[in-house]
């Protein structure tokens, strides 16, 4: 879905409008656990999410290749990258993940965007001194 708006051979000007062309979506998530002292490594988190995908969507879900780009063990928050067409599947399985090792838990999806760049500039995180 690519459209060349204007082309001018003599100048360097070129404008391309890309609609729904983003190959990936990015999610900023945070895991909330009942027992706040529970430690979770990056590998644990990824395995946990994979389990959720497999429980909800079976082998199709387990085959979704998402990435854990960044993870902070102290706040249990991280950035996920997922192919755009699998976003809804990943999001729904995160919503339905309610237990981690027999304790209640919930994933908070803080921001979702087709651009990783926009997750680095969220004005909702602005703190006035």
């Amino acid at each position: 879905m690519r459209r060349e708006d204007e082309t001018d051979e003599t100048s360097v000007f070129r404008r391309v409008v890309l609609k729904n062309a983003s190959p990936y979506h990015y999610m900023k998530i945070c895991l909330v656990l009942d027992d706040e002292s529970t430690k979770l490594s990056a590998v644990d988190l990824k395995l946990f999410i994979l389990t959720g995908l497999k429980n909800l969507f079976g082998e199709v879900g387990a085959a979704i290749s998402f990435d854990l780009l960044k993870y902070d063990e102290d706040t249990l928050s991280g950035l996920l990258r997922v192919p755009s067409r699998s976003l809804v599947k990943l999001w729904s399985s995160l919503t339905l993940l309610g237990f981690y090792q027999n304790q209640a838990c919930a994933f908070r999806v803080l921001q979702v965007s087709p651009y990783l760049l926009s997750l680095t500039g969220n004005s909702r995180e602005l703190k006035l001194d």
């Binding site: 404008r15 890309l18 979506h25 699998s86 976003l87 809804v88």
Partner: peptide
């Protein structure tokens, strides 16, 4: 197909020059 769909996203990519009078 419904599960695979996402809301619209739009990216406009432009190349030009500061020297171009019409920039």
């Amino acid at each position: 197909t419904d599960l695979d769909q996402n809301p619209r996203s739009l990216l406009v990519s432009e190349r030009s020059s500061f020297r171009d009078l019409k920039n």
